[in-house]
């Protein structure tokens, strides 16, 4: 593993074994995260974004299971040399070692802040719990820390909020509370699963700005999940484009937006409404619909909807990621005819 990376996901495979069949929710995903970098994972609903991060956190529940690949994470150490590598995929998800990393080194900001908070426990109770799970401090001290965190993420009157319940707060405030909770143990990797989908556009912009600021102050890395390319453009340094459990293209944000290589990335970019477009002009959409994970097509998963699909090739064989100049990487036969999965 490259010494620069804090997290390196290699050929991750996560399946759901069900009576109806096996869903290959994540099927050979690889990407890296460097310290202080914001990596955006983008893709349509159901492409396996959430399952990917659940696999990283070790919280995939039955009938799901991580069946292959490596999740290499650099643990906190004294100096770069002492930093130790762990393969999270090999740890028991419920075990002590994994639980010590989860919530402290790697923290999660969930998709729906409302549903992620218990309606019958106070905000303070849940924040204090997050602090005390990983830090050996008194309840009083934990309360102080929680209030400090809420101040940092811009929750007004934090001391008062401690005794309030989640349903007494607005959507934006709830998401800020979730961010405060995620920050409570100063994680080095923050995973945000569509943190702005459940809130309105103005608040959304504020939350994005807040995350950006926090990332710079704390120097942490962020994996930012969204299906909104506009959001990616605002926050990400590096982009991972997923489709049906596989990575189609990765690269620095500017290259992805200005020089997309994969037909799927191009199609996604074309479907964003542009301010400059004529107002009545219909928005281009991607033809066809996403196949169900049970009957995933043979070959490249995007082939049935791809405008550049080569019959006899793309629908038979599966392309492998090919490194291009400038840090971009593409899984497509248009770029490397021979890069095929075995």
């Amino acid at each position: 593993m490259n010494p620069d990376h804090i997290l390196s996901v290699r050929d991750l495979k996560t399946r759901f074994l069900m009576d109806e069949g096996t869903a290959k929710a994540v099927d050979g995903v690889s990407f890296d995260v460097s310290p202080g970098q914001v990596v955006g994972i983008v893709g349509e609903s159901g492409c396996g974004k959430s399952v990917t991060i659940k696999s990283i956190l070790g919280i995939v529940q039955k009938p799901g299971e991580v069946v292959g690949g490596e999740i290499l994470f650099r643990q906190r150490g004294n100096g770069a040399a002492a930093a130790e590598m762990v393969d999270l995929a090999k740890l028991d998800g419920r075990g002590k070692e994994m639980r010590a990393i989860r919530g402290s080194d790697i923290a999660l900001i969930p998709q729906e802040p409302m549903a992620a908070l218990s309606p019958v426990h106070t905000i303070g109770n849940q924040l204090v719990e997050a602090v005390r799970l990983h830090q050996d401090v008194s309840k009083r001290r934990a309360e102080e820390l929680a209030i400090e965190r809420m101040t940092e993420v811009g929750v007004p009157n934090p001391a008062e909020r401690m005794s309030m319940y989640s349903w007494e707060l607005s959507g934006g405030l709830r998401q800020r509370v979730m961010i405060a909770m995620a920050l409570s143990c100063s994680p080095r990797l923050l995973i945000a699963d569509e943190p702005t989908t459940a809130i309105d556009v103005t608040t959304q912009a504020q939350v994005l700005r807040l995350l950006r600021g926090l990332q710079q102050n704390h120097g942490m890395a962020i994996i930012f999940i969204t299906h909104d390319l506009g959001v990616i453009a605002q926050v990400a340094d590096y982009v991972v484009v997923m489709y049906l459990g596989r990575v189609m293209e990765t690269g620095p944000v500017d290259d992805i937006f200005h020089n997309p290589q994969h037909p799927y990335t191009r199609a996604l970019l074309e479907s964003i409404p542009s301010v400059h477009a004529l107002s009545r002009e219909p928005l281009p959409t991607i033809e066809g619909s996403i196949p169900h994970p049970f009957n995933r097509p043979a070959g490249c998963p995007f082939a049935p909807r791809c405008v550049a699909a080569m019959p006899g090739k793309c629908d038979r064989r599966t392309p492998k990621p090919t490194q291009l100049n400038g840090g971009q990487s593409v899984s497509c036969f248009l770029h490397n005819d021979a890069a095929e999965e075995d």
């Binding site: 659940k54 956190l57 989860r102 402290s104 999660l108 969930p110 549903a115 908070l117 218990s118 799970l133």
Partner: peptide, 10 residues
């Protein structure tokens, strides 16, 4: 989802 969140807290 709060189950997931509690797990993610460790």
């Amino acid at each position: 989802p709060y189950m997931e969140m509690a797990r993610a807290k460790g």
